[in-house]
Every structure is written in structure tokens, then in C-alpha cells.
Design a protein around this nucleic acid. Structure first.
Length: 190
DNA sequence: GTTAAGATCTGCT
DNA sequence: GCAGATCTTAACG
């Protein structure tokens, strides 16, 4: 994980993280996935960002050092997983919205429900957290270490097309192109 | 102490 | 395609 990229610019980081592997170790085994969809949340001029109204108990992890996890609970049922970016205290992060399942498909299926189609295992923020068993105990975790870490992928295909679109599910700041996807990938949330 | 809203998903039509 | 579930968090009194 190149920490310098994460610290430098949140938008750059969101694009850089596409294609990275997300790895999760538990007693049950290892699951990994390739990141195919991200969203940037900025501190400045971004009302959709949790940190836009200052530091609170929930978003404290967002103000930590780049490369740590920010996990929060939403809609009574689901977790969302972010990678903190920017310098300490900047309050920016990248939301991981979807991954392409790579290893541990059986374990993901067990967590998401037997018979769950592969393309539905982690194609959304809430689904991803279920498949990877991510909960608030990982809030603030250092993502360069076990049991949850990021890994650069040196074998990306050369014809990869990265596209920016408006963000999904936010009620404000929709004019901004801060969602990044691997175009044409089958495992996007939409 | 009380209330309204939310970076979503699933099931049913 | 659309409405409901569900509960934590934060703002307000």
C-alpha cells in the first residue's frame, strides 16, 4: 500500500485504489476481492461527507492517519467501509463500494446466504461488509496489517477503463464526479 | 430525553 | 420498479 498516494489527494487515491486487493483474515479463513468501485468524500465543499460538519464521535476515525479504516453503521442493518485519506486531521476518506470476489467465495456465500450469486456477493457497500465480516470493531484499524489489509495489484490488464460518475445514494453534492468505477466490470453495485 | 434522517438492501409487484 | 425494514447517530429542548 502506497501511503504517499493516499495522503496526497483523496480523488487520486480513489482512482488509485481501483484494482487493489482487499484481504480479510478470520478464524474461518481468508477472503479477498478486487476493488472495482470507490467514492471520494472530501472535507472541503462537500456536504455529503460525514466530516463536513466537524469531528464527532462517529466520524473520529476519518480524522486519523491515511491508510486506516473508517467503518460506520447505517440504516439499522448495514456497515460501510472507508479508507481514510489525506493528512491527519483533514477528515477525508474513500468509500469502498464494491469488490470482485477472488478468494474465499464459499465463505462469502456462507455469510451472505447460501445460493447467493457471485455477482451479488460484494456488489455494494453493505454487501461487501457482510461478505468480508467487517464491523465497527475494525474502525480505526491500520490497513497495512492483518486481519484486514490492502494489497497493490501489479497484474492489472492494460485495457482497463476507469470512469468518473456522480456518487450514489447521497442526497447532496450530486453535481460532483467523485465516484470511480472500472467500466464494464460485472461486479459494480450498479 | 426525544426525534428525525441516513454514503442501503431485500422482497414483492 | 418501488416501498418498507430497522436502529444508530446527531441535533434540539
Amino acid at each position: 500500500m502506497k501511503k504517499a498516494v493516499l495522503e496526497h489527494d483523496t480523488r487520486e487515491a480513489a482512482r488509485e485504489l481501483l484494482g487493489y486487493y482487499l484481504c480479510r483474515e478470520t478464524e474461518e479463513g481468508l477472503v479477498t476481492g478486487r476493488i472495482v468501485e470507490t467514492e471520494a468524500y472530501l472535507y472541503k465543499n462537500d456536504p455529503a461527507c460525514h466530516a463536513s460538519r466537524g469531528k464527532t464521535r462517529r466520524n473520529a476515525a476519518m480524522f486519523g492517519p491515511a491508510g486506516t479504516a473508517y467503518v460506520y453503521f447505517i440504516y439499522g442493518n448495514y456497515y460501510c467501509f472507508n479508507v481514510v485519506t489525506g493528512k491527519v486531521g483533514s477528515g477525508e476518506a474513500v468509500l469502498i463500494r464494491a469488490v470482485e470476489p477472488v478468494e474465499g467465495l464459499g465463505l462469502m456465500q456462507k455469510r451472505r446466504g447460501a445460493g447467493c450469486a457471485q455477482k451479488n456477493l460484494a456488489s455494494g457497500p453493505g454487501k461487501l461488509c457482510q461478505a468480508f465480516a467487517i464491523d465497527k470493531s475494525l474502525n480505526g484499524h491500520d490497513l497495512s496489517r492483518s486481519p484486514l489489509y490492502l494489497m497493490a495489484n501489479s497484474q492489472l490488464p492494460g485495457d482497463l477503463v476507469i470512469k468518473a460518475t456522480p456518487r450514489v445514494g447521497v442526497s447532496s453534492g450530486q453535481d460532483k464526479q467523485l465516484r470511480f468505477i472500472i467500466e464494464g466490470n460485472k461486479f459494480l453495485s450498479r
